[in-house]
Computed example of a mutant assay.
Amino acid sequence: MKITFEKEKKTTSFRATYSQTLDRLIKEDKDVVVLEADLMKSSGTDTLFKDHPNNCINFGISEANMISAAGGMSKAGLIPFAHSFAPFVTRRPLDQIYMSIAYSNSNLFIYASDAGIWSQRNGGTHTTNEDIAIMNAMPNCKVFNPSDPVQLTWLMNNYHENKGFYYVRCGRKNEIQHIYKEDSIFEVGKGIVLQQGTSKVAIIAAGMMVSEALLAADLLREKMITPTIVDMFSIKPYDESLIQQLISENDLILVAENHSKIGGIGSIVAYEIAKSKHNVRFKHIAIPDAFGEVGSLEFLKSKFKLNASDIAESILEELSLVKNLKRRKK
C-alpha cells in the first residue's frame, strides 16, 4: 500500500470517475464490456455507448437479465462492468447474482450507485440501507465502499487486473472532495489509518462517512481529543488485524456508516470486539432499522444523525459516561 493525501481542493463525481475509467479501460482492452439497465445518463456511461457501441449493452429495465448475461459473458472471456441503483443490483436480481455470478465463480464488477442516503429524493423504493448485509453474506463476493473517486478508480483497475466478483457501493452525481492523491495504491482487505490519535478513541468509517469522521476529528480537537481515524473501504475481506489492534489500543471505538445498523461494518467490529478479551466501549452511528425517506442529502444526514457533529457529540457523551463510571468505582 502507498497512500498519499490530497491537500488541494479537488472534486469529482463518482459517475464521472466510473465513465472516464471505463473509457480508458475499453481503449486498453476490447474485452471490457459495459452493462446498463436503462440508466446510462444516470451513471454517465451514455457517452460510452456513443464512443464504444460494440462494448456497451443496454438491457432495459431488466436487471436480472443483465446479471445473468454478465455471468455468461464472464465465462466467454469478457470482463463485465454492470451498473444500476443499489437496490436494483441487490434486492431485485438477488438469485441471479447468487447463481450466475457468486456460485458460478464468474467475474463481475457491480457499481451500485446511490446506496443508503445517497438516494436522496428518489425515496424509499430506490433506497437500500441493507445492501452490505446482503452482499457480505454471499460467498465469493468482495464488498467495497470507496470514500473518494481515487479509490473507485483503483478498485476498477484492480478488478480489471485480478478479476473476481466486486460489489462497489457509493454515490453518483455529487461532487466529492478527493481524500487521496491519484498515485495512491490501496490493498484489498486492508484499512487505512488516516490519522493516528492520542486519546484512546478510534473512529472507523467508510464511504461518505470518512469525510464526516475527519470533520468530527476537527471538532473533537477543540475539546483536546485526538481520535484515530480509519477508512475501512474494504468491507469484505476486512482488515481483522487492524480492527484487533484498534480494540487493544483504545478505550472507545465508534463506527460510522451510511448503512443500516444491522449487518454492516458495525456488526463486523462488534463481532471482533466479542472475540477479543479487551473491555473496549462501542458506539455505532448508522441508519436505524427503517426504510428510506425522501429528502436532500443534508436533510437525511440530519434525520439519521450521520453528521460530523453527531459523531463528535456521541464520543463526548460516551467519554463523559466513562469518566463518571471511573469516579463511581473510586
Rank of each mutant, 00 (worst) to 15 (best):
M1T: 14
M1Q: 01
F5D: 02
E6C: 10
K10H: 13
S13M: 05
I26F: 06
V34Y: 00
L35G: 01
E36P: 02
E36I: 15
D38T: 15
D38V: 11
L39F: 05
M40Y: 00
S42T: 14
S43A: 14
G44Y: 06
D46V: 15
T47E: 03
F49E: 10
D51K: 15
D51Q: 11
D51M: 10
C56D: 01
I57M: 02
N58D: 14
E63S: 12
N65Q: 08
S68T: 15
A70T: 09
M73E: 04
L78I: 03
P80G: 13
H83N: 10
H83T: 15
P93Q: 08
L94D: 06
D95N: 03
Q96W: 05
M99E: 11
I101S: 00
S104I: 05
S106D: 11
N107T: 13
N107F: 08
L108Y: 05
I110K: 04
Y111V: 03
Y111W: 09
A115G: 11
G116R: 01
I117Y: 00
N122T: 13
N122V: 14
G123P: 06
G123W: 03
A133T: 13
I134G: 01
N136P: 02
F144M: 11
S147G: 15
D148M: 01
Q151R: 03
T153Y: 04
T153E: 13
N157V: 03
Y159A: 02
E161R: 10
N162Y: 07
K163S: 09
K163E: 07
Y166W: 09
Y167N: 07
R169Q: 10
C170Y: 06
I176K: 01
I179C: 02
K181P: 01
S184P: 08
F186Y: 02
V188F: 00
V188T: 12
G189Q: 04
V193D: 02
V193F: 04
Q195E: 13
S199I: 10
K200N: 10
A202G: 05
I204W: 10
A205Y: 07
A205L: 07
G207Q: 03
E212A: 07
L215K: 13
A216L: 02
L219P: 02
L220D: 11
K223H: 11
K223I: 09
I225S: 08
T226P: 03
T226L: 12
P227R: 09
P227D: 09
I229F: 00
D231Q: 06
S234P: 14
I235V: 15
D239Q: 03
L242A: 01
L246S: 06
S248F: 06
E249I: 12
E249K: 00
K261V: 05
K261F: 00
K261A: 09
G263M: 06
G263A: 04
G263S: 06
G266D: 11
A270M: 09
R281P: 01
F282T: 13
K283T: 11
D289S: 08
V294E: 00
S296Y: 04
L297M: 09
F299N: 11
K301A: 00
S309A: 14
S309C: 06
E317R: 04
L319M: 15
V322A: 05
R328K: 12
K329V: 15
